[in-house]
């Protein structure tokens, strides 16, 4: 079954976007990315450490494969800072996609919705393909869509917590209302969370920590891939209604022994 979706002018078959942070080493990272089947990789932009000769650029490890790169604006606290980082990212010539990520609180890293909307408006005007990371608020997600976001990425829970989907009701509403792809970004912990997100009808899932911090990141990447596919198929299949009482699979009255 060909089950594609589109972001900007890119058609994608994998519904797993994978982050490139926190892996124990570049080899494990590369193998995990391969096992994930992901077509979209996220990364961050930082100052080069000029005192150390070590080449820690992420690109040297993944450049040989054909991926779509989704740089983020992590570290930005305002729309202006995010726009600056986005411009730097685009100057690399690798991608005009940008994940707007603006955190105003160091403890929760929750996105600042007002600055995120501002940055999205500016970057859309500048021709970027904008994927804002945002709280799981249905109205805010709609506002970002109206501002021209190519996809909207509500968080399931704060970044790196692995708490899973804290508000499935909101996520379901967001999907119902959306006319751009919804991608759950941040807060997932394990395969059941990823499957649940897909069952709720989101277009894709973005994960980093649950894979990178698993005891075996390569296996977990493969497991997540299966969970995302399973969740997607379940969503398309349409689950049964929940009932309060039992109903026998073979009928109960039909066969009695007295």
């Amino acid at each position: 079954m060909r089950d594609l979706f589109r972001i900007g002018n890119q058609e994608l078959s994998s519904r797993f976007f994978i982050g490139t942070g926190l892996f124990p080493n570049p080899h494990v990272q590369k193998e995990a990315i391969k096992a994930s089947g992901a077509q979209v990789l996220t990364f961050a932009i930082r100052r080069i450490n000029l005192e150390s000769a070590r080449d820690d650029s992420i690109l040297q490890h993944v450049q040989d494969e054909a991926y779509t790169y989704l740089p983020n604006t992590s570290g930005a606290r305002t729309a202006d800072e995010a726009v600056r980082i986005a411009r730097l990212a685009r100057a690399s010539g690798l991608s005009d996609w940008i994940k707007v990520e603006i955190s105003a609180n160091e403890r929760t890293l929750l996105p600042d919705p007002i600055e995120t909307l501002k940055a999205t408006e500016i970057l859309v005007k500048e021709g970027f393909t904008v994927l804002p990371y945002i709280t799981d608020d249905p109205i805010m997600c709609k506002r970002l869509e109206e501002a021209g976001a190519a996809a909207v990425m509500p968080g399931a829970a704060p970044i790196g917590t692995g708490l899973g989907i804290l508000n499935p009701y909101h996520l379901g509403l967001i999907v119902e209302e959306a006319s751009v792809p919804i991608i759950v970004d941040a807060g997932l912990g394990t395969v059941s969370d990823a499957a649940q997100a897909m069952e709720l009808g989101v277009s894709a899932v973005l994960m980093n920590t649950p894979v990178a911090k698993a005891k075996d990141p390569v296996w977990m990447a493969g497991a997540m891939r299966l969970a995302i596919e399973a969740g997607r198929l379940a969503y398309l299949s349409g689950r049964m209604e929940k009932k309060k009482y039992a109903s026998a699979s073979s009928g109960y009255e039909a066969f009695k022994l007295n």
Binding site: G19, T20, G21, L22, F23, Q29, T42, F43, A44, I45, R46, R47, I48, L50, D56, S57, I58, L59, P71, N72, S74, L88, A89, A91, S92, G93, I159, A186, L206, M207, N208, T209
Partner: peptide
């Protein structure tokens, strides 16, 4: 600045320059 501009972009005293690259991130 794009890489093509580096050769012609002159530096001035006290200019603020940022050299950045891509690192792992989610």
């Amino acid at each position: 600045l794009t890489a093509e501009q580096w050769g012609s972009a002159l530096v001035h005293p006290h200019m603020q320059i940022e050299l950045v690259h891509f690192v792992g991130g989610g």
